[in-house]
Design a binder for these strands. Structure first.
Length: 1036
RNA sequence: GGGCGAUUAGCUCAGUUGGCCAGAGCGCUUCGUUUACACCGAAGAUGUCGCAGGUUCGAGUCCUGCAUCGCCCACCA
């Protein structure tokens, strides 16, 4: 560790000299580790596990800084505080990144590997990025309990996943269902909803005529016209739907149409979902609608739901690659290959099939109209091809069950629950028998509360509109579903005998197939090799799919603590204290953790949810890899230091929704910061134009490299990103560094006890006491910016600008004052430690060497090996000294007034001026008493203070309340006249305003008395000052 | 389509339950380095609080409408 005396400290703070050594000290001391048996109230946070897809960016830095602020604060407060770190395997995202990399670097596709070999490659990627992420968190100073580091796919977590799956399955909450999934035909995998990107696409609305079977309508028409953007799916149509209130409905009751090309007879059904045509409507759908909707249950989610309501057949006409196929559910009875119109379509891509079908309708005179239409189409976030809703077998978790959804809604804090769901809906109220539904509200440990409160609505709305959760994914990277299946061709009553006995931790579900056979699904909680071998040799095969990545994330607050075992960790720390996350995953993650924790343990996973802002770039765009506007925390640590980054992020965290972070580039050779030019992409995004360094070479951001998005090349020097936003924290760190340098240089006496206090000492301790209270209150409300600015203002404005300046003339010879100084510095370092752990720890160690005992009556600052483990300051309210604050306010006003006079009259800084002050006796007495402070601060000789001082001619004058201050021999008459005139104008305006307010009868009668009195006092003061100013003007 | 947020100084943003003569940081102007810190200090300038109505003694703050920007969600007629 570097030397600690003032003379040996450099005059500028260099984070690199300090951070690693301090980190090492914490680690050596095991300061971040906690055991459930430790004393103190439990306080726990589980990290939102970052995806191992890529290195952390600034959003993570923000997220983790805030958690660390909370953890360090509570740890210092004496709580048994623990922070569980870890990472998420991020199923599809990680698999995609690795697949891309393999294709780019080795020209290989996933299918070129055996499953195990491919998983091993992803595992290697995970190991690399888990390592990077861990070191990023460490370098940021995150005081995670690293002994407890977890990964969502390691063995303890896998165990938790299998337990949860088994219990849900056994309780009938996991079921096998056919459903439409978001299918990516290019990569042939199912995507989660959040993996689908909506893009506006220019397409067409096709109006196609389907012939009516039977007599024509009264209008003479013998067809109905359906409107669609997807003609090619008509091959799978099983109905035409119309609104029951449509005027044509009566006539079309019980009618059938003949599906063109296919010659399938399909019914007309009536469904409220259909939008009726209205050419004048604001709704583009109504303007485009023909009133008839083709229903293709296998290829459109809405149609699927209509199909369910009307028991329509489901006909899948596509292969997994989205080409037209008769082999994936087309009814064999239709003999499609014998149909000369269908046969040429088979094997065509969906795009070609669309063209062919459009031509067919045109050729047959059945294409009524084609209108251009721009609409949103889901695209794969991986391959960027349009998503195909695809009909397939999947596993579902019945989150709509009251035990999950209902429990989650009932766990909300009553004042944050908008209560639109009534008991009749099965949610948010008692069950039919009037009893609370399980788990009962009484079993919750408190309620779930969101900060800012508005996010409770997001949570609630999501739950109210939730659908059952498709938890299977056609991937290789993830928790393999612990289900084995086998099909039996036996009568139902013989099924049990055929299946055979099940061991503990095993259970089955049987489903009857269309052909009367049964498929049985066998779940195994414990993957014992001999059992697996036994059932596999009996013909059972394991499901090839894996679980949605959020399934294991949902268990995170439990699985990190050893669930399903009953561990002391769970007992002590679950529910955790707060979940700190961004709003984008309220639905995907927060909701599911709440449901799972309530279901398995009957408790909430956390009591508070704090949702912080999202960091956008300088143009209000979300930071993303594809835009290249992300910033690696390492870059900021490099350019500004970890503490500067943390402090700035903390002070940016208000309860707003977004914050902007303009991104600059650091030239790797010169170290200069370059603000790149920006260009607008066709998609309307602003991206950095290629930026060249001093030698004309294009610079590549290190974020892009760290995220595996760009390959390093010799020509592209590695550039770091930065942002001037972080200058704030850097300057503040430097200020702290130097204030402590000054203090160390002045703590020379034998330690006193701070017993004899001058005004500045009483004042600063009073301000400190208030600051402590404000900081505690702010952190308690998750008002991080308020916490940061409160301390910034105290340290910089009160302590440095006023207190230290005020004591400079006296501190060297005053041990008591030195003690107060040491105490204030100590307390400030403690208060700032959660936000700026490195520099505060470093300086605090130095302070300990110079002045071992700090603290005053009413403010204990007990010693500690490490600041990290030191006690949070707890100030007695008795330290608040109203008199001292009032007196010091006056001193500040007087000093300010003299400074203004000096500036206005252009008095050279070194020139000492003589002043006299005329003030009421009581104030004059105080001015005399505190004269040393004002002189020290304003380079002023105060003399002749008193009520009887003669008003001198030819002096500059400043008026502060009841005090008139005369500065002799410096008068610049013009400047003085100008200044006084301006002031007189201001006062006149103010007086008019105040008089107007008091003349308003309603104001005097209705406004609080205190306020009215205040106004009267203001008026009196203003009038007094105005008189004084006018007298002075006259004298000039 | 539904929901949420933002709009305050040149820039980035604070402004808790309505009581301001509207604040901070950066930037700008002037002055100042044998002084803890020039990553500093002092003084100063800069606002129709997006627009239009309304409630109120009093509105940046509450209500209504409008405009612009952004985010999240959503099911491709």
């Amino acid at each position: 560790m570097p030397p600690t005396t003032q003379t040996e400290l450099p005059s500028q703070y260099n984070p690199a000299d300090v951070e690693a050594a301090i980190n090492q000290r914490w680690r050596d001391a095991g300061a971040d580790h906690a055991e459930p048996t430790n004393p103190g109230p439990p306080y726990a946070i589980v990290i939102p596990p970052p995806n191992v897809t890529a290195a952390l960016h600034l959003g993570h830095a923000l997220n983790n800084t805030l958690q660390d602020v909370l953890i360090r604060h509570r740890r210092m407060c004496g709580d048994n505080a623990v922070w569980f770190p870890g990472t998420d395997h991020a199923g599809i995202a990680t698999q995609t990144v690795v697949e891309k990399r393999l294709l780019m670097q080795e020209g290989k596709k996933r299918t070129d590997f055996e499953r195990d070999a491919f998983v091993a490659r992803v595992q290697a990627w995970k190991d690399e990025y888990e390592q990077i992420i861990t070191s990023q968190l460490r370098e940021m100073g995150c005081s995670c309990d690293w002994q407890r580091q977890a990964f969502t796919m390691d063995e303890p977590r896998a165990k938790a996943v299998r337990e949860a799956f088994f219990r849900f399955f056994k309780d009938g909450l996991i079921y096998r269902g056919k459903y439409l999934v978001n299918w990516d035909p290019a990569t042939q995998t199912a995507l989660a909803d959040d993996e689908v990107e909506m893009q506006d696409v220019d397409g067409n609305f096709y109006y196609m005529r389907y012939p009516l079977i039977g007599p024509p309508l009264s209008t003479g028409e013998n067809y109905v016209t359906v409107a669609t953007t997807r003609p090619e799916t008509m091959l799978g149509d099983t109905a035409v739907a119309m609104h029951p209130d449509d005027p044509r409905a009566e006539e079309l009751k019980d009618r059938m149409v003949l599906l063109p090309i296919v010659d399938r007879e399909i019914p007309i059904v009536f469904d409220n979902y259909v939008t009726r045509p209205d050419p004048d409507s604001d709704d583009p759908k109504a303007r485009m609608s023909s009133g008839f909707l083709k229903v293709t249950p296998a290829h459109d989610l809405n149609d699927w739901e209509i199909g369910l309501r009307h028991q329509l057949p489901i006909i899948n006409v596509m292969a997994p690659d989205a080409s037209i196929s008769v082999d994936h559910g087309w009814p064999a009875g239709e003999k499609p290959l014998d149909n000369p119109d269908v046969k040429p379509l088979v094997g065509l891509s969906r795009e070609d099939a669309r063209k062919a079908i459009v031509i067919w309708f045109k050729d047959h005179g059945m294409m009524e109209e084609v209108k251009p239409y721009r609409h949103a189409v889901g695209h794969s976030y991986r391959s960027h091809v349009p998503i195909e809703p695809y009909y397939s077998d999947q596993w579902y978790l019945k989150v709509t069950d009251d035990r999950l959804r209902g429990a989650a809604l009932r766990a909300m804090a009553p004042d944050q629950y908008a209560g639109s769901y009534k008991a009749a809906d099965g949610i948010g109220g008692p069950g039919p028998d009037g009893e609370p539904r399980m788990p009962s509200a009484a079993s919750y440990s408190g309620h779930l509360r969101f900060t800012p409160a508005r996010y409770a609505k997001t949570f609630q709305t999501w739950h109210e509109n939730i659908r059952d959760w498709c938890i299977s994914r056609q991937l290789w990277w993830g928790h393999r579903i612990p289900v084995w299946s086998k099909t039996f061709n036996v009568p139902a009553d013989q099924l049990d005998k055929q299946i055979g006995p099940q061991h503990t931790g095993e259970t089955t579900q049987a489903y009857e197939n269309d052909d009367g056979t049964f498929t049985v699904y066998w779940v195994m909680r414990d993957l014992k090799p001999d059992r697996i071998e036994a059932i596999e040799s009996a013909g059972w095969a394991q499901d090839p799919d894996v679980l949605d990545t959020w399934f294991s994330s949902a268990l995170w607050p439990m699985s990190t603590m050893g669930w399903p075992q009953d561990t002391p960790e769970l007992e002590t720390w679950n529910p955790t204290s707060v979940l700190c996350t961004a709003r984008e995953i309220i639905t995907l993650w927060v909701s599911r953790m709440v449901m799972f924790n309530l279901y398995f343990r009957g408790t909430l996973p956390f009591k508070d949810v704090f949702i912080h802002a999202m960091i956008q770039d300088g143009f209000g765009q979300k930071m993303s890899k594809s835009l290249g506007n992300g910033v690696d925390p390492f870059d900021i640590i490099h350019s500004h230091g970890a503490d500067a980054m943390r402090f700035t992020l903390t002070s940016m965290t208000t309860h707003t929704q977004d914050v902007r972070m303009p991104v600059d580039i650091v030239d790797p050779h010169t170290g200069e910061t370059v603000t790149p030019d920006f260009i607008t992409t066709p998609g309307g995004h602003k991206v950095a134009a290629p930026t060249q360094n001093h030698s004309g070479k294009e610079m590549v951001s290190s974020f892009g490299l760290a995220s595996g998005q760009a390959a390093p090349s010799d020509d592209a020097p590695l550039a770091r990103n930065t942002s001037e936003k972080f200058d704030l924290g850097q300057r503040f760190a430097n200020k702290m560094w130097n204030a402590v340098r000054f203090s160390l240089g002045n703590l020379t006496a034998e330690p006193g006890d701070g017993g004899a206090r001058a005004l500045p000492d009483r004042w600063v301790l009073s301000r400190l006491a208030r600051t402590i209270a404000d900081a505690d209150a702010a952190l308690g409300r998750y008002a991080f910016a308020e916490y940061a600015t409160t301390l910034y203002d105290f340290f910089w404005r009160d302590l440095c600008d006023w207190y230290i300046e005020a004591i400079k003339p006296t501190v060297a010879d005053n041990p008591d004052q030195q003690h107060v100084l040491a105490t204030c510095i100590d307390a400030s370092l403690r208060l700032l430690h959660p936000a700026m752990p490195f520099i505060t720890e470093r300086l605090w160690q130095g302070l300990g060497d110079a002045w071992p005992r700090r603290g005053v009556a009413g403010l204990a600052l007990p010693p500690s090996e490490l600041l990290m483990k030191a006690a949070w300051p707890d100030a007695d309210a008795g330290l608040i000294d109203e008199d001292a604050e009032r007196d010091f306010d006056m001193i500040q006003d007087v000093v300010g007034a003299v400074r203004e006079l000096r500036q206005t009259h252009k008095v050279p800084p070194r020139q000492v001026i003589e002043t006299t002050a005329k003030a009421p006796a009581a104030i004059a007495q105080k001015l005399l008493e505190y004269r040393s402070i004002t002189c020290g601060l304003a380079n002023t000789i105060g003399r002749g203070v008193g009520p009887d001082v003669d008003k001198p001619a030819a002096a500059a004058v400043a008026i502060v309340g009841a005090i008139e201050i005369y500065a002799h021999g410096i008068v610049d008459t013009d400047a003085e006249r100008q200044r006084l005139t301006k002031r007189a104008d201001e006062l006149a305006k103010q007086i008019k305003n105040l008089e107007g307010r008091l003349a308003n009868k309603a104001y005097v009668e209705k406004a609080p008395e205190k306020l009215v009195n205040e106004t009267r006092e203001q008026l009196t003061a203003a009038q007094r000052e105005a008189k004084s100013v006018n007298d002075q003007l006259a004298a000039l």
